[in-house]
Write a protein that binds this DNA or RNA. Structure first.
Lengths: 236, 236
DNA sequence: TTGCATATATTGTACATACAAGTCATTTAT
DNA sequence: ATAAATGACTTGTATGTACAATATATGCAA
């Protein structure tokens, strides 16, 4: 009769506490046995939940010590722009340059749209990301209106669209496809990123798959990599 | 007294049979219960082994049916260059332009070397990948001599260095870090890729972590993305 | 023939338990 | 004082069991 999976409930509970900093980064989670008591279950089930969180990159496990909360809140490698020289952190600021509005689909999108998406209008917005007060990334975003309501930028949690999805709508990013190109900066992009026309920039087209069926997020990013290269890592 | 892990033995046994085509792609593995009998253990342990193979991407599981052997030879997203227009396959050819030879470490490598690596010489080789007979990717590779012997290019399995590692040396790629930049083509690169100087190209620096301790593979790729953008997808 | 119920084999979830192995603070022996 | 042993607590591996959920073939009935 019960369709809910216990390990999944535990997994989501812990995940939410991590995302809301109840379990802050670098801290250790309660031990597996403590979770057993808390949820009235066995270590097998608790470990299954922790295993999932491990795969999702929220925690790491240390034999004999405990499970440590990792820094990163997901946020795909390619989105968290970090410089390469050591572990210095940068001041990152995001400015919404085009408020979310309803438009027709842009042919810029290189991925094929589903029928549902084609029959819907779409929500579009544009942002520019600054690092140390210099514009580095210009980002266009689209999604189907019939899959998710428009969200005003002043409702963004900490200015982040993805954090908003996760915390307010409980929508998680499940995966993505990307297409990378190196192209010369056009006049429009050069202006918005404060660089010369024709300088090589990294053009990334992304389709994010989400936990909500029918909802894909499309992105079109232009990155000035001269000062801040894009870094990402992954595990197999 | 026993240090060997049963699930790991089973995992390696199955992996080897997959790699040697004893369990060919698209076929189904013996059921979990059959493995239990074969190895004299319980489903919990067999499932742990299968879980690991799942994470490594060797199999996929189908509820109620079985575990299916996957095609893929690993080969990271960014290495398998694919065009974006549909699912067309291209004729890919790799030419070794600099035979593996022993040299000093190149300062081109942006990742910090370990002490072990610094104290060793390194093996270097260069390849150019052609798609439809046009040069598209120029690839430099390095690794520490004390972690792996030099391998002559005519010993490459199907011309692939990574396949050779997997099949002849049983070394698997565990993960990688990448750094992406968009840069103008230098004279040397423009010549080797048959393009004009200054055209934007995608520069990728990679460090591959392998299953062999102390062995990292360093790569420096220059991709002409004008005709064939780089595509990769990932799951969380 | 078609459709439905059933049996069976498979993977998925969950419980209960035991011991191995790593970490760390405390106690004990030198 | 220093080093070794101890014990408490943690995660890792493993056994054994039970039932749920899914996939597929088989046989029976309309």
């Amino acid at each position: 009769m019960k369709k809910i999976k216990k390990y999944h409930q535990i997994q989501e509970y812990i995940k939410k506490r991590i995302q809301t900093q109840k379990y802050p980064p670098d801290s250790y989670l309660p031990s597996e046995n403590e979770f057993c008591v808390q949820f009235g279950t066995t270590r097998t089930t608790v470990r299954k939940a922790l295993d999932e969180l491990l795969k999702e990159g929220f925690i790491e496990k240390e034999h004999g010590k405990g499970s440590k909360v990792l820094e990163r809140g997901k946020y795909l490698g390619l989105l968290s722009v970090k410089g390469f020289s050591g572990s210095t952190d940068y001041k990152v600021m995001t400015k919404v340059t085009v408020e979310p509005k309803i438009v027709e689909w842009d042919p810029l999108i290189v991925f094929p749209l589903s029928e549902d998406e084609k029959n819907s209008q779409c929500v579009y917005f544009q942002r520019v990301r600054y690092i140390d007060d210099k514009p580095v990334v210009l980002e266009n975003n689209w999604y189907a209106l019939n899959a998710l309501e428009p969200i005003k930028s002043d409702e963004f949690v900490e200015g982040s669209f993805f954090k908003t999805l996760s915390q307010e709508y409980l929508i998680e990013i499940m995966g993505a496809e990307q297409e990378l190109r190196s192209v010369p900066a056009t006049k429009e992009i050069a202006e918005k990123l404060g660089m010369a026309i024709g300088v090589p920039i990294l053009h990334i087209s992304i389709r994010f798959r989400t936990s909500r069926p029918n909802l894909n997020l499309y992105g079109d990013l232009y990155c000035n990599t001269t000062e801040y290269p894009i870094r990402n890592s992954y595990f197999l």
